[in-house]
């Protein structure tokens, strides 16, 4: 099995290099919104001294950390897979005795990430030098504790993306479905604003949803803002979601392939 993933990695890594220009465009698209939010909140905090107790440095460290977490947990399954369902090239994948999403699409996501990081790291260093954040609360320990969260966050995000992609089995408007979830994620993952700034009711709800593990929880763990109890609670919730997402994905995939093979591949 490992060998399968290794070969998929080689193929995807080689393929990614063919699409370097595409990659740069995606990357800028991704970077723009957090950097804009960062700049806005920092200006407001500078004028007011703080926003709901968050200082300019809080916003800087929050968004600079979020940029990294975002890179690591984001996924692009819809862009690499939905078209295969729509134009029927999925047939070729279905003839192979391996799961196309849990092998090829997964590895493709990771190869895309790896290549992205090559460009992302220098940009991040430039931003770091520009904003000069005070990162004294971050330690190696806080980073290590956040690693499982980032992994779970990626897995959740990937499975959600895979399920949204599978909507292509039923509708040609799969990108509209994806936009809806994108908005939900931007709001409830803490990308738009740190979750503390949302109305208390929304914060309460967000605690029990999977989205905060996509960005907010790992960021706050790294910044050492969560108590041990909070971390354990968030991890427990996200693991429950991971199981739910996995089972749900298997079901959606099975039904989708059934439909695909009914209407004509």
């Amino acid at each position: 099995m490992l060998r399968i993933y290794w070969r998929f990695w080689q193929v995807n890594w080689a393929e990614q290099w063919q699409y370097r220009a595409n990659l740069l465009m995606y990357l800028f698209y991704w970077l723009v919104s957090p950097i804009v939010y960062l700049s806005v909140w920092v200006s407001i905090a500078n004028v007011q001294g703080s926003v709901s107790g968050l200082t300019a440095n809080d916003f800087i460290t929050y968004y600079l950390t979020l940029l990294v977490v975002d890179q690591l947990t984001s996924e692009i399954t819809i862009h690499i897979f939905a078209y295969k369902i729509q134009d029927g090239t999925l047939s070729g994948d279905l003839l192979r005795p391996v799961h196309p999403i849990l092998t090829n699409a997964l590895v493709n996501n990771i190869a895309f990430k790896a290549l992205n990081l090559i460009v992302f790291i220098p940009i991040w260093i430039a931003l770091f030098l520009l904003f000069r954040p005070d990162y004294s609360s971050v330690t190696l320990i806080t980073i290590l504790i956040a690693v499982p969260g980032i992994l779970i966050g990626f897995c959740l995000n990937f499975l959600l993306g895979a399920m949204i992609t599978c909507m292509a089995f039923w509708t040609t408007r799969v990108y509209s479905v994806s936009q809806f979830f994108y908005l939900l994620i931007v709001l409830l993952s803490g990308q738009f604003v740190p979750l503390q700034l949302l109305p208390p009711v929304v914060q309460q709800i967000a605690q029990y949803l999977p989205f905060q593990m996509f960005r907010f929880v790992p960021v706050e763990i790294i910044r050492n803002r969560l108590s041990t109890a909070e971390i354990l609670f968030d991890y427990a919730i996200s693991l429950v979601w991971l199981v739910i997402f996995y089972l749900l994905f298997r079901w959606v995939w099975r039904e989708g392939v059934k439909r695909f093979s009914a209407v004509g591949a």
Binding site: R3, I4, W6, R7, F8, Q10, V11, A14, E15, Q18, G92, L95, R96, P97, V98
Partner: peptide
Amino acid sequence: RLSWDIPAADSFLLNQAI
């Protein structure tokens, strides 16, 4: 069914693994 961007030899190795 082959990837257009890489040599066939690489796709063959992938098939070997699959």
